[in-house]
Design a binder for these strands. Structure first.
Lengths: 345, 345
DNA sequence: CTGAAAGCGCTAACAG
DNA sequence: CTGTTAGCGCTTTCAG
């Protein structure tokens, strides 16, 4: 016989109590490290616990306390460099505060997104961090419930929800001005995705225009490259079509790194040099940016800060904070690499 | 008043029963879609449910059924291209079978790895899919418990556990022979990581040697490049040192894609052309392989198959299958790209 | 400082 | 076909 339970069913709190010759309350007390337990009582119980290999049943505990110590993170895809690093940061931030994270993949499907929001009442989690891809502010307002939610990303969200994002318009402007600083005059934007209802692209486009106008450059709508879907292949098609149809540009701001690396690849295939002929900037500063060729200059949201704020704010809500939604702008910077290098002094 | 609960606490099963004027059992019956409920009874209950906005409390259900319909997936890092695509595939496979996945990040820390295995008894999940980075077969044997586990990856695992992996030795041999087929004679292996106890590297090294010997090439231990840690930076250092110390090679098999793309980058910096001077092969066929320059030939495990098998086997165990561990070899192939192109006919 | 007992919300025997 | 009832394993008043 090893030190674990020998044979049949799981050992329960009462079993430990019986084994140690004390009441269940006392066992509970030592499990929870409560004060006011005599040392020898404590050690006796401790011994019984290890003897029997007792592990508290979390489900039972949850039922009575109404607390799960879990939060959900709902993201469009796990298998995406930005979201997986976001998930990583959130898991770590939550761990520090003794919460576990249930990652929910919504596949950018609005039904699944709504399900997550509705599900949260099922009592599986104490709160939700939610990065929508499709769902709109209106949809959300309808399912107002009591479990706390913190929204991430660029979609407009109901005022009642806490929300964290970077200032997309400003960041986009910074990126455009960096390209202008490199002497680029005809700067394209990739890509305006058909059916993107979350509005990230819109804000980035606004910043793009603002950046151009501020610098006295005219906005040429043919330089806003339309993309069919979020796949890198569509991005390649868009860039290729632009080139084929004789549209000329010397700078390219992309809505995300995946589009950007796809563009780099296409430009190389077309024999166009980066950054000499066309300087390229991506968005999200994912691992792709580090290993592309040339390495990719990219708008870099501070994921640590976003994750920390999200977890902190959510836990505040879980612990009872009320009041209207707080709106936080997270820090970011432009991570300069080869595809749009630093402006020479 | 909207259609949801107006005011205070969550609505329970009894509330619905009272509202509909039936017993709890009847409500439970319609919630579970049991047969033998008269249509009008059913619709009456249904109406009460929507009227009150009732949502079953999963925690309570779990406590009584002892079933969580959740499985855990324990991986070293979420933020890693291979593991995040594995997670994606497993989440989808589990979804098809009405299971949800709790992703646990072990950070390649053996304590955390063991915690996950011990934790599974906490009743949070019905089973665990576990890809270890550090923990050995011996450690595992000690915590034999009753919750089912399916092991993934190359580490040796106790015979009592189900286990899925690709044949690393054979795959490595295939890769080496592909390089030999390209006429390469001096093929290096990157990298033998210090302190890698999980044994993946060892198997790949064995295949590497076997491939060389089979083809009548001698094995030169100076061609096995030692790497300090799993970071891409260490891999660069290793390759650089090899080059500086005059070690010559024309082929490079890497233990994973991250090392491979790091190597590609370093070779480029050193002015060495790929694949002309050195052909490179990676491992895992991650997104990095698609966007590196040149694009990377890589050993490509069939993640779909692995995920499906893992989920299927785990659920079989959850449903009571007993017997010793099943050992499954998953399919793979060599995904040919530019860094080690197809052999000309 | 410790024990007894009630109950979290649900399910599933067992009667009717 | 529907209702009553006894728990699932834990926490937590409230007495002692």
């Amino acid at each position: 016989m090893s030190g674990t339970n020998n044979g049949s069913r799981r050992v329960r709190l009462v079993d430990v109590a019986r084994h140690a010759g004390v009441s269940t309350k006392t066992v509970s007390n030592v499990v929870h490290n409560y004060q006011h337990v005599t040392p020898d009582m404590r050690s006796r119980v401790q011994k019984a616990i290890t003897d029997l290999g007792y592990k508290p049943n979390l489900t039972a505990r949850r039922l009575v306390t109404g607390k799960t110590s879990m939060i959900a993170l709902a993201i469009p895809e796990t298998n995406h460099p930005y979201f997986s690093s976001l998930a990583d940061a959130i898991v770590k931030a939550a761990e520090d505060r003794d919460y576990r994270v249930l990652i929910e993949q919504t596949d950018g499907d609005s039904e699944k997104e709504l399900d997550v929001l509705r599900d949260r009442e099922a009592g599986l989690v104490d709160g939700v961090i939610f990065q929508p891809a499709k769902v709109t502010s209106l949809d959300l307002a309808q399912i107002q419930e009591d479990t706390p939610v913190v929204m991430l990303g660029e979609a407009a969200s109901p005022i009642s929800f806490d929300h964290i994002m970077i200032d997309n318009t400003a960041a986009s402007e910074v990126a455009v001005k960096h390209l202008i600083g490199l002497g680029r005059k005809r700067i394209a934007f990739l890509g305006d995705v058909r059916g993107d209802s979350a509005g990230a692209t819109k804000k980035r486009l606004t910043g793009y225009q603002k950046g151009l106008e501020d610098s006295g450059l005219s906005v040429d709508t043919s330089l806003v490259l339309q993309v069919e879907s979020f796949s890198p292949e569509s991005a390649k098609v868009a860039v290729q079509e632009a080139i084929r149809s004789g549209i000329e540009f010397d700078g390219l701001l992309c809505r995300d790194d995946r589009f950007a690396v796809a563009a780099l690849q296409l430009l190389r295939d077309e024999g166009i040099s980066t950054p000499e002929e066309i300087a390229v900037i991506g968005w999200d500063d994912t691992v792709l940016a580090r290993y592309s060729y040339p390495t990719l200059t990219s708008v870099s949201p501070n994921i640590q800060a976003i994750a920390n704020d999200a977890v902190t704010m959510l836990i505040e809500r879980i612990e009872g904070l009320s009041g209207t939604g707080r709106h936080v702008l997270a820090p970011y910077n432009l991570h300069i690499r080869e595809s749009a290098p630093a402006v020479k002094a």
